[in-house]
């Protein structure tokens, strides 16, 4: 396959770029712009393309049209794209670091930690307020992930397997506590918490867009710069060490970055299942490439996946609003299974 190599940051960032991967990433970008446009044009409030266009350029047909486009449609679509990319990046990094294709943010307790804190506060201390929810979710995610990381760290090796097993165990324990709170909590509050647990972008606004964007500016470049250690780590600790990578430091640094991205996404919209698991695999099947380009493809795939899920959930059965988290599970998982089965069939042939 024809490739070219892009270098930057004094050689620390090197992307081997197969042309097919570039083409696929361009197609994904076009698809994302298409979904954004489609999403801005479509909704329960009747606005044609010209009216939406006029609204975007400061000449709305009415105040309500301006509210619908600028306050309802635009921010939720942007947030869907950003959290999709975040979860996908996070899943890809964890799969590389853990050298396990089943790794995703829920494995390190991000979703469960956020869920436990948000459900606890919603049910036990509702007075603490809705506006603290993102901060609490973020804190819960980080604390649980840190606990799992600390508990699984060891000087004697075997950290990766211990990390995965510890993650599964702690996540199961936390999920049980969350379920107990939902079962025994006040019904109104439990319903409120369940709405958040379904993973929905329906109530986000420009505040979420702003702090997600700030996070992206700081964390995503760090991720891209980590392509080289990730490339080495996926071949195993010995090979990576031989290539001059400080494996232990690189591994924990990447895990912390992955947790931070996923925690930020979960804090904004609640747990969106399967995106972190599926997007890296979808990206890999769309185009084979090196780690750096795969991260780019994964981010775009995750963004497109959640953007489409939110649009479908908002428009398909309007006025019924289906949370994006449910749509990603309903559509994403069968697609994922089909891809796996097709790959197996090909390899058998």
């Amino acid at each position: 396959m024809s490739t070219t190599t892009l270098e930057g940051f004094g050689g620390r960032l090197a992307l081997r770029v197969p042309y097919r991967a570039v083409l696929v990433s361009l197609c994904l970008t076009v698809a994302i712009i298409g979904v954004l446009t489609w999403s801005l044009m479509t909704g329960s409030y009747p606005l044609d393309g010209a009216q939406v266009w006029a609204t975007l350029f400061g000449d709305p047909p009415s105040d309500t049209a301006s509210t619908v486009v600028w306050e309802f449609r635009f921010p939720r679509t942007l947030v869907a794209f950003i959290v999709g990319a975040f979860l996908a990046f996070s899943g890809a990094a964890l799969q590389y670091v853990a050298r396990n294709p089943l790794a995703d943010p829920s494995l390190v307790g991000v979703s469960q930690g956020a869920a436990l804190v948000v459900v606890s506060v919603t049910i036990l201390a509702p007075g603490m307020g809705y506006y603290l929810r993102p901060i609490l979710a973020f804190g819960g995610s980080l604390v649980v992930a840190a606990l799992i990381l600390l508990a699984s760290s060891s000087q004697r090796g075997g950290e990766t397997l211990r990390f995965i097993l510890m993650g599964i165990g702690v996540a199961a324990l936390i999920s049980s506590i969350t379920s107990a709170l939902l079962t025994y909590g006040d019904i109104d509050r439990a319903m409120s918490a369940l709405g958040w647990l379904a993973g929905s972008v329906h109530s986000v606004g420009w505040d979420e867009v702003r702090w997600l964007t700030v996070t992206a500016i700081f964390v995503v470049p760090a991720f891209m710069a980590a392509a080289r250690p990730l490339s080495a780590i996926r071949f195993g600790e010995d090979v990576a060490t031989g290539l001059g990578i400080r494996v232990r430091m690189a591994r924990w640094g990447l895990i912390i970055l992955a947790v931070a991205l996923a925690a930020t996404a979960v804090a904004a919209v609640g747990p969106l299942g399967f995106v972190g698991l599926i997007a890296p695999h979808l990206a890999r099947r769309l185009a084979h490439s090196g780690v750096g380009m795969h991260l780019v493809l994964t981010g775009l795939t995750g963004a497109l996946l959640v953007g489409l899920a939110d649009f479908a959930g908002r428009a398909a059965f309007a006025p019924i609003q289906i949370p994006a988290g449910l749509v990603t599970a309903i559509i994403g998982v069968p697609v994922f299974v089909a891809l796996i089965l097709r790959t197996q069939a090909r390899s058998q042939l």
Partner: peptide, 10 residues
């Protein structure tokens, strides 16, 4: 719990 805000505006 998951209102269609546009439907309300309409």
């Amino acid at each position: 719990g998951d209102l269609d805000y546009e439907a309300i505006a309409a």
